[in-house]
């Protein structure tokens, strides 16, 4: 039987969840025995080259590109996992939720303490740039998500246990210390 194929992405996240994935230390060798990686920052494959079994996504959706990438993952992966607080509930980027976008952009580009140099009051508006969404969306509000692994970042042991259980088909019993929201 061929190995299950895994793809990963970081949307509106900080890559901390990916770092945590690397934190499984020497088990990463075992992981490579268990699965094959496709589109992922870990192997730097930029586009899907085949249909995947598991998609692991870090970060929420704060702009139009996040939405497109997420939908692409849903299309190309049998199982999607929301990895970490941002993917599950928007996380720190979602602290802007409830505040009008204009207020956020004004603060970022016009009024904030670090924008002194922006004398021409320029707000980035190039067509090539993704468009900012009205709020940061948890992934499951955009596409169907199959599993959730909370944490900021999720503990390496949790990621390992979950991926291993998924691949081997074993039942997943999560010890108390692995489910954390920070």
């Amino acid at each position: 039987m061929s190995k299950p194929i895994v793809a990963t992405a970081s949307l509106a996240g900080c890559f901390g969840c990916h770092m945590s994935l690397l934190d499984i230390d020497e088990r990463i060798l075992k992981l490579i025995e268990l699965v094959e990686f496709n589109k992922s920052p870990i192997d730097d494959i930029k586009t899907f080259t085949k249909q995947c079994d598991i998609g692991i996504i870090e970060g929420g959706c704060c702009n139009s590109e996040n939405i497109e990438v997420l939908k692409l993952f849903r299309k190309n992966c049998k199982i999607l996992i929301s990895l970490g607080e941002c993917a599950i509930m928007g996380g720190l980027p979602a602290m802007r939720n409830g505040i009008p976008v204009k207020e956020c952009l004004d603060e970022a580009y016009l009024n904030g303490p670090t924008v002194g140099e922006n004398k021409e009051h320029i707000m980035p508006n190039d067509d090539e740039l993704p468009m900012i969404l009205d709020k940061v969306y948890p992934l499951h509000e955009i596409v169907k998500i199959d599993y959730y692994l909370p944490g900021c970042a999720p503990r390496a042991d949790l990621i390992w246990a979950a991926v291993a259980a998924l691949v081997t088909g074993d039942t997943l019993n999560i010890p108390y210390e692995l489910v954390k929201f920070d």
Partner: peptide
């Protein structure tokens, strides 16, 4: 793991 209800924000 995730609330069953939609976030209000």
């Amino acid at each position: 793991m995730v609330p069953r209800f939609p976030y209000e924000f």
